[in-house]
């Protein structure tokens, strides 16, 4: 294959598993351009390894999100305000 046809094919060749892997974060962000997005979907639909990987990758993100805590110490705000009042007063 000539260098020119190889270059021409580069943009159209099928994605490898490694290519698909590189696009995962951009895919979840919805940041892939239309063409890349189509090629990505095509690979995922055909490749059980990547499709299962994507599934568990998304579960990983969900699990991180689920560890989010809402319970800052109840006295946190009062204590912080107290500290700031003292410090700002001292510097006035």
């Amino acid at each position: 294959m000539s260098i020119f046809s190889r270059l021409r094919n580069l943009g159209r060749r099928e994605l490898t598993c490694q290519d698909a892997n590189t696009f995962l974060a951009a895919y979840l962000d919805g940041a892939l351009d239309e063409q890349t997005s189509e090629r990505f979907a095509k690979h995922i639909n055909r490749c059980p390894t990547c499709s299962s990987y994507l599934n568990d990758y998304e579960s990983t993100v969900d699990l991180s999100r689920a560890t989010r805590v809402q319970n800052a110490p109840p006295e946190l705000v009062a204590e912080t305000l107290e500290f700031l009042r003292l410090r700002l007063k001292a510097e006035d």
């Binding site: 490898t16 598993c17 490694q18 290519d19 892997n21 390894t49 299962s52 990987y53 599934n55 568990d56 579960s59």
Partner: peptide
Amino acid sequence: PQFVDGHVTGPVAQW
């Protein structure tokens, strides 16, 4: 994950 020729090497665990 490690890739050789675009393919992942070693076993890929499935959850």
